[in-house]
């Protein structure tokens, strides 16, 4: 795509976003929609910033991000390890895959009661639920990537004398990287999706807590602001991960 056409693409996108915001603002300002129930965007942001001081806001964002980083970090790390090992050693895969396939369909949120019973109401139970959200997409994709490595690639490397750990590290894992990367991104998105529910568990900080708390005090502006904040944080971090993956994995990716 040329630079000019990409610029044109995003400029049309900006028009779309601005148009949507303008319609929302106009509808609520004109009174067609009750502004108390559905505040105009400017009022929502201004009201939220007035109600939640920047320092609290930062605390909510950083608390949530820390939980996600822990849950995702452990989940993705373990997922990559188990997925690669199961894909490489057939026997191990034959053992782990049925167990994973059995547990995976249980939605992460359904674990919340057991998470509370196992880990109490503190941080570990929230991190555990986020961990589940990250682990399953990563382990499934890593396994799929490993078992999908072109056998010709492996045989060619073997012909050239590669074997054992070097075959795994230098040929198989790089070939599985695109799938692992996909798993990481799906897992990151799911971690965010699970976050809010995880923060329903007796939290006293975090973005999910912020909006749930705002519901009790009836501050719709804060709720809307919080929803947008969670969305933007998700979008920015996902973009960041995508860029890192593109740079690190891109050289293996054929397309």
């Amino acid at each position: 795509m040329t630079k000019a056409s990409r610029w044109k693409d995003s400029s049309l996108g900006v028009v779309g976003v601005l148009g949507l915001l303008a319609v929302w603002e106009a509808l609520t300002r004109s009174g067609a929609v009750n502004p108390v129930i559905f505040p105009p965007p400017t009022a929502a942001v201004a009201g939220a910033l007035a109600k939640v001081p920047p320092r609290d806001l930062w605390e909510h964002v950083s608390t949530s991000l820390l939980r996600i980083l822990w849950g995702f970090g452990v989940g993705a790390g373990l997922g990559i390890l188990v997925g690669i090992a199961s894909g490489w050693y057939r026997t191990l895969g034959a053992l782990t895959q049925p167990v994973i396939d059995l547990i995976r369909p249980i939605p992460p949120l359904a674990w919340i009661p057991m998470a509370i019973i196992w880990f109490g109401l503190g941080e570990p139970s929230k991190v555990f639920v986020i961990f589940l959200g990250a682990f399953f997409p990563v382990v499934t994709n890593a396994y799929k990537g490993m078992t999908g490595v072109d056998p010709i690639l492996l045989r060619a490397a073997q012909t050239m004398g590669l074997s054992g750990p070097r075959l795994l590290l230098q040929v198989a894992i790089p070939a599985a990287m695109p799938d692992i990367a996909t798993g990481l991104r799906v897992g990151w998105g799911l971690s965010f999706g699970v976050l809010v529910a995880a923060e329903l568990i007796a939290a006293d900080a975090g973005m999910g807590f912020m909006i749930m708390h705002a519901r009790q005090s009836g501050e719709i502006g804060v709720i809307i602001f919080g929803i947008i904040l969670i969305g933007v944080t998700n979008l920015l971090t996902d973009y960041g991960i995508g860029e890192v993956i593109r740079r690190k994995v891109g050289r293996w990716h054929a397309t």
Partner: peptide, 16 residues
Amino acid sequence: LSLPIITFARSVATLS
């Protein structure tokens, strides 16, 4: 026109 709106709406955590 709709791409950024859809991208953002997808990023919004449903449960939020």
